[in-house]
């Protein structure tokens, strides 16, 4: 791993949204004090269930929403509050995004070629034959061949996997250094997921790309992510190298997730099934997982736990992280 400055760095990031309730407007914080750093050529997997804030966090990095507090550095520049087409454009030339739904992320009335060539022309300044060659080259890069035929197709003529490849090619057309991949395989057929993950992996090596890989699936996070960050209710529960978290999870929530993943149900983790969705309202106290946690105590309801190291490159936000291992 590089020792130079990280390409993307978030410090104590908070994203806040207003919601209308019967008691008037309140605020929820889907991202609540999250810090991380990712280098190029590295993959950080954000793992969490719905409501964990993983997608909101990913979207904050490309500034689809503006953080309420905290700082985002991209390539050493503070981009937390940049505005306007020019500055956002600079940011988005560095960070691109791949969306979850390959059926919704392509415009149904535009051909594959139209999706890519406008971007290539704008960002690489190519025209005419050079533009066409570069577009074809992009399609070859993401494994869509014969490219000269693919370039003419419309989204409805492609399978889900092919569409996702087009979406990846579109992200690459800008020549980014970093990609936020928001559940890129979860809506695809099982038999083609592996190839999309392998494609992302190959692009990482080929272009020295960094990734934030957003997923709810621990197994794919382990496969693709160098490091992993488990989120719950917008807060980091546990972070560390993927191998270590899977092998020795320190947070009760991580262990609940692990034991619920389809291959590996074990009956020894008791879970409180009466609560499903975490409370996201601003001003909550204690550990957000406390009301579902099998080992929560008074202190968990009162004080918010901070991330503490439980190993080299491994930290967990749990008051009982040390004891938790034995339960």
């Amino acid at each position: 791993m590089q020792t130079d400055q990280p390409f993307v760095q978030a410090i104590d990031l908070v994203v806040r949204f207003p919601v209308k309730t019967k008691q008037g407007t309140k605020y929820i914080t889907p991202v609540d004090g999250v810090s991380f750093a990712v280098h190029t050529g590295e993959v950080l997997a954000l793992v969490g269930e719905s409501g964990s804030g993983k997608s909101t966090l990913g979207r904050a990095l490309v500034r689809f929403n503006e953080p309420a507090a905290g700082t985002i550095f991209v390539d050493g520049n503070d981009v937390t509050h940049v505005r306007g087409q020019r500055d956002l454009g600079t940011l988005r030339r560095q960070i691109q995004m791949v969306f979850q739904d390959p059926f919704g992320s392509l415009n149904p009335v535009r051909s594959v070629g139209q999706h890519l060539s406008a971007l290539v022309r704008k960002h690489q300044g190519l025209r005419g034959d050079a533009l066409r060659q570069q577009t074809l080259q992009l399609l070859e890069t993401v494994g869509l061949s014969p490219a000269s035929e693919m370039i003419l197709k419309y989204p409805h003529e492609l399978s889900g996997g092919q569409r996702q490849r087009v979406a990846i090619a579109r992200a690459l057309a800008v020549k980014p250094r970093f990609i936020v991949a928001d559940e890129p395989i979860s809506m695809l057929d099982v038999s083609i997921r592996a190839d999309i993950l392998k494609l992302l992996n190959r692009l990482k090596r080929e272009f020295d790309l960094g990734y934030v890989y957003i997923t709810h699936d621990l197994a794919s996070a382990k496969y693709f992510g160098d490091r992993m960050m488990v989120l719950y209710a917008g807060q980091v529960m546990e972070t560390g190298t993927s191998a270590e978290i899977i092998a020795s999870p320190a947070h009760p929530y991580t262990r609940l997730l692990l034991s619920s993943t389809s291959g590996a149900w074990s009956r020894d983790t008791k879970l409180n099934t009466s609560v499903e969705a975490p409370d996201l309202f601003e001003g909550r106290r204690g550990c957000p997982f406390a009301n579902r946690c099998p080992i929560s105590t008074e202190v968990c309801l009162r004080d918010r736990p901070v991330l503490r190291a439980v190993g080299a490159n491994h930290a967990a936000a749990c008051h009982h992280a040390d004891e938790a291992i034995t339960i």
Binding site: V62, Q85, Q96, M97, Q100, D101, S105, K122, V174
Partner: peptide
Amino acid sequence: TRDFILAARLGGFS
């Protein structure tokens, strides 16, 4: 809020 519109915004188009 459609993804392909977000993608166009990411592409830097007005």
